[in-house]
Simulated assay, not measured.
Amino acid sequence: MPKHRYIVFYKPYGVLSQFSKDTPNQSTLQDYISVPDVYPVGRLDSDSEGLLLLTNHGQLQHKLCHPRFGHHRTYWVQVERVPNMDALDKLEQGVVIKNYRTQPAKVKLLSQEPLLPERIPPIRFRKNVPTSWLEITLTEGKNRQVRRMTASVGFPTLRLVRIQIAHLKLDTLQVGEWRDLTPEEVKLLQKLVFLK
């Protein structure tokens, strides 16, 4: 039986969460990861950055992607302007996007900008519009959900970085780097998925 591989990758901005190239100039996982037969668990849009889990363990991948399986995903989100308590409460309780009410989320306004590498290209800076950072933890992952949530309460997302999936974190990974999970991380991941 082939050995299962579990990889975490710090996906850069502008990279598609797939290995196939639709156009020659498009940046995909193929440009960074040379491990055969691993596939992303879920996805990050090309304009989002951060932690991506890849594996060749089909059953685990299927379970983690199933909507009924609610594992935590945490994001640092730079938004236009500074959300008030009303907006933060709405995000926490769930907002309606595309006829769907999002599940309750954990949301906090960060007191300072998180330590992140510069984005290439940088976000569009507007001198008269302040920005702020939120930490948002979801238990679901619908298409462009975080961006739609912040827009629905009037604070559009400028930059989105996933920093954690369940117990897996970016930690010391640099943009464009990947590593295998440690045996302990694999054990925790399997326990989370198969005992839930």
Rank of each mutant, 00 (worst) to 15 (best):
P2E: 15
K3V: 13
H4T: 00
H4R: 05
R5D: 14
V8H: 06
Y13Q: 11
S17E: 01
Q18R: 13
Q18Y: 00
F19W: 04
F19L: 05
K21P: 02
N25A: 12
Q26C: 03
D31E: 07
I33Q: 13
D37G: 05
V38Y: 05
Y39D: 04
V41L: 06
D45G: 03
D45M: 08
S46I: 10
S48A: 15
E49V: 01
G50K: 13
L51C: 06
L54V: 06
L54H: 08
L54K: 08
T55R: 11
N56V: 06
N56L: 09
G58Q: 01
Q59W: 00
Q61N: 14
K63V: 12
H66W: 10
H66F: 14
T74I: 04
W76F: 15
Q78L: 13
V79A: 03
N84L: 03
K90S: 11
K90C: 03
E92P: 00
I97S: 00
Y100N: 08
T102S: 07
P104M: 05
A105G: 01
K106S: 03
L110A: 07
L110H: 06
P114H: 06
L115I: 14
E118P: 15
R119V: 11
P121A: 09
P122E: 02
F125K: 14
N128G: 08
V129K: 15
T131H: 04
S132K: 02
S132W: 02
I136D: 00
L138W: 01
E140R: 09
E140I: 12
R144K: 14
Q145S: 09
V146Q: 10
M149N: 05
A151M: 10
P156G: 13
P156A: 10
T157Q: 04
T157P: 11
I163L: 09
Q164E: 14
A166G: 09
L168A: 08
L168S: 03
Q174E: 15
V175Q: 06
V175D: 08
V175K: 07
W178K: 07
W178Y: 15
W178H: 15
D180P: 00
L181S: 03
E184G: 02
K187H: 13
K187G: 07
K187C: 11
Q190D: 12
L192S: 13
V193D: 01
V193M: 00
K196N: 15
